[in-house]
Amino acid sequence: MEFFRGLVLGQYVPVDSAIHRLDPRTKILATLLLLTVMFAVREFAGLAILTVLLVAVALAARIAPAYLLRGLRPLFWLLVFAVVLQVFFGEPGGHPMFRWGPVVVTRENLAQAAFYGWRLLLLVLSTTVMTLVTSPMEFTDGLERLLRPFQRVGVPAHDLAMMMTIALRFIPTLLEEAEKIMKAQMARGAEFTRGSLPTRARALTPLLVPLFVGAFRRADALAVAMEARCYRGGEHRTRMHVLRFGPQDLVAVTVVAAAAAFALIPPAAWRGH
C-alpha cells in the first residue's frame, strides 16, 4: 500500500502481550478515562505522569517506539499550526520575551503553546496505542457490550457495532482499491500531485467515481453474502467469543485510575506532602 504507508493510526499489530490480552472493555474504558483526564489536567506535571504511563503501556505491549513516532509524523504540521496559533494569538499581557512588528511573544503564551502541543500529542498517542493493541473485532465487541445497557433507551448497539466491524474489515480493501485505481489512471496520464488546488480537486474525479461505484457494488455483494449466511440483525444472534473481565483487567483499571488521580492532583498538593 504505497500511498498509505505513513498510516499507523488504526493499524492493529498482532503481538502477544499482557496488554493485548486484556478485555477490550478495559482498554476502551481506560482510554476514555485517559482522554478525559487529559482535558482536565491543568499542569505540566499531570501531562508528565500520563506520558510515563503511556510509554510504559507501549513498552509492555512490545510496540517499537520508532514505529509509534512514525505514526505521529502526519500530525506534525497540525501540531506546528496549533503551537504557532497559541504563541502569536494567545492571551494578551504577561511577560514579553521578544517582539516582532505588532506581534508580541510572551513567556505565558509560549508555555501555554507547549502545554497544548504536548496535550495534543498525548491525545493522539493514547488513541494510537489503543488501536495498536486492540484488534478491530475486539474493539467492536467491547463497544457493543458497553453500549448494550443503553439499548433500552434506543441506542442501536448491535447495528453500530456491525457497521464498525464492516467498516474496519473494508478499510484495507478500499485503500488497496483506491491505490490501484489511482495507478490505473496515472497509467492513462492522470496527475494527482501537481497543479493548483482546484486543478487537483478536479483531478480526483477519475479516482472518486470508480471508488464510489466499486464501494457500492461491494456493499451490495456483501449484503447478499450476509443474508446468505442467515443474518437478520442483532436479534437471536449469539457470539462465539464471550468477553471475560478477569483479575488482570482489575489490575489494569486500578493502575490507570491511580495514574489518572495523580495526574489531576495539583502540584501544590504534592508539595504539601
Partner: peptide
C-alpha cells in the same frame, strides 16, 4: 506512460466518465 500502456487486473474498475468515448479519450486529453 504514453509509450508503455499498462492495464491492471479488472480494468473496468477505472471507467468513470459519462460516455464510453469520453472515458477512452481521458488518456489522450491528459
Amino acid at each position: 506512460r504514453q509509450q508503455i500502456g499498462l492495464l491492471f487486473q479488472d480494468p473496468e474498475q477505472q471507467l468513470f466518465e459519462e460516455t464510453v468515448v469520453a472515458d477512452v479519450a481521458f488518456g489522450p486529453r491528459n
